[in-house]
Every structure is written in C-alpha cells, then in structure tokens.
C-alpha cells in the first residue's frame, strides 16, 4: 500500500476538522410524540359485536365489503386479524366471565392500528414512508415505500398487513385513523362515527384519559383499574378499558418503554456525526501507516495487490 505518513495525516486532518466543528453529543432519548393529539377510547364493556365499524371502515377507506357483514354469530368462531382487505375487525372472546345464570358472557374486542405515540414502525421505516402526524395518525406514504416490511417486523401489535399477491406494486395496508376526516373540524373516524353503543369515543387524547379515569373511578366494580394504551410502549392514541384482563382479548402485554428507544439510542450515540466511524478510520490508518513504515525500514517494499 502506498500510504505515507504525510498523506495519512493530511487526510485525517481534514476528517478530524469536520468532526471537531460539530462535536458528537449523546442526547438522551426523547419522545417525538406530537403534542395534543387525537385518540380513541374503546370501552369493551359497551361493545356488542354488531360489526358496523367494520362495514363503515370498509366504505370510508374503499376496501372490499367485510366478510359476511351481517353475520354476528358464526363469523366469531374464528379469531380474525386485520389484513390487507380489512383495517379493523371485531373478535369475540369467552374469558370465563358469567352472568347471573352462570351463562358465559362474551367480550367483543375491536382490533386496529393503535397509532402509537412513538411508533416502532415509524422509527423502523427505511425511507420514512411512515410518519406520525400532528393529528396522532400514523400515516403511510406508498410513494416512498420499497416494500422491505421492516415496519411489520417492528410493530408490537402485529398490525401492518401486506399485499403479498401483488407482484410489482404491493402496499402496506393498515388503519389510517381516517386522517383526512379527522383533519377537518368535527371529523370523526368512520368506525367511531357509526358505533351505535358509543363503545368508541373520539377526542383529544388528554381528554379521553380523563373520561376513562372517570369511568374507572365511578364503576370500580365493572372496570379493571387499567387503561390499556395509556402507558403501553410509551402510550398509544387508541386506548381500551375493559372488565376482563386485556391479554384475554388478545391485547398483548407490553412494556412501558417506547419500542424505538433502545435502537435509536444505540444508533444515535454511535453514529451521530459519524464520530465512531471517523475515529475507527483514524486508528486503523495510524496502524497502517506505522506498519507500512516498518516495512520500508526493513527495505522490503510491499506493492501487494489487494
């Protein structure tokens, strides 16, 4: 290798200067959640499993009509997940709760994108095709997407679905929180607007938390004292209250730490202003220059190919 000390130090001087101008600063990780976002409160004690929300969602988002839209019975025999044709689904669970005649009482639970305050998918997306909007919606921009599906790997709620059978232009499909509708004054998401039992309450997230806490306080015998989504993975825009444990209705038990915190902390403390790669380059270059000089002293010039 034809590296001389002079060459090397000139190169490193330039590299070093560029680093010195903006010294690496390891900021502590901070939530990027926009202030005062919208949210939805789902009260599982009110849901009767009518599946009108599924129908409204399909209409609003131009999706195919839900599977057997009028069925409120046998459709519940299988546990369904949102997929590329349905942004939200209702499932029925028998959690062991019984009525006064010892008959099992079903609990119905709606599933959709939770629109996390610090979404794992937004952090993961290689091109920033997923963004957390000021409304609180996690929005997908198909024009940037390359189809790596890292968002699907990252999502703790297993929500994003993929158009696996489109060979050239598949899209990631998930609940949009009806971003366009809720951006307008008094706009409601399709599902919240249609719900006949007011199981879905739309509003500012702070307000919803107050509403939820009030219901929990006033009916301690009915509700579990836990607002699912208040703290889970750093908080979500969609929140649930229930009379049965959340893990029995397929809402996963999650830590309070926002999902992107660890990986973002590692990435930014290692690579902000590329300080560590530049440092490594410098150290290796110094080694190379020294080893090369020793060679020259030994009168053993090395012009070896790579």
């Amino acid at each position: 290798m034809q590296i001389t000390r002079r060459h090397f130090f000139r190169f490193m001087g330039a590299a070093g200067a560029s680093v010195a101008v903006r010294p690496p600063s390891a900021h502590a990780w901070q939530s990027k959640a926009p202030p005062d976002t919208f949210g939805c409160l789902v009260d599982l004690t009110r849901c009767v499993g009518c599946r009108k929300c599924e129908e409204a969602c399909a209409t609003v988002n131009g999706l195919p009509e839900p599977e057997r839209a009028d069925c409120q019975c046998t459709i519940f025999e299988k546990n369904r997940r949102p997929d590329e044709t349905a942004f939200t689904v209702i499932n029925r669970y028998y959690t062991g709760k019984v009525d006064t005649f010892d008959k099992p009482v079903p609990t119905y639970a709606k599933v959709q994108c939770m629109h996390c305050q610090d979404p794992a998918c937004v952090s993961a997306c290689i091109v920033g095709a997923l963004t957390k909007e000021d409304t609180g919606a996690v929005r997908y921009d198909v024009s940037k997407c390359i189809g790596c599906r890292y968002c699907m790997v990252a999502c703790p709620f297993e929500i994003p679905a993929y158009e696996y059978f489109d060979p050239i232009t598949p899209r990631v499909m998930k609940c949009t929180f009806c971003q366009e509708r809720i951006s307008k004054a008094d706009g409601l998401p399709g599902c919240a607007a249609i719900c006949p039992t007011e199981a879905i309450t739309f509003g500012r997230r702070d307000t919803l938390l107050k509403v939820a806490k009030k219901r929990l306080k006033e009916n301690p015998g009915i509700y579990l004292q836990h607002i699912y989504g208040e703290k889970e993975v750093g908080g979500t825009a969609w929140m649930y209250i229930s009379s049965v444990p959340f893990d029995t209705v397929n809402l996963p038990t999650l830590p309070d730490t926002p999902a992107p915190k660890l990986s973002e902390t590692i990435q930014h403390s290692l690579f902000s202003y590329l300080w560590s790669p530049v440092l490594l380059f410098g150290v290796l270059g110094a080694f190379m220059a020294r080893c090369n000089q020793e060679d020259h002293k030994e009168n053993n010039p090395d012009k070896g190919g790579v």
Partner: peptide, 18 residues
C-alpha cells in the same frame, strides 16, 4: 422487497432513526 424497482429510494428519502 415488495417493490424491487424502488430499491434506489433510500438514497433520497433518509430516516436516520432507522
């Protein structure tokens, strides 16, 4: 990747958190 023809997009759309 689903959209192979879009593989160049990360060169222009950067997400430093990713």
């Amino acid at each position: 990747i689903g959209r192979s023809w879009a593989i160049w997009k990360p060169m222009f759309h950067w997400n430093f958190n990713s």
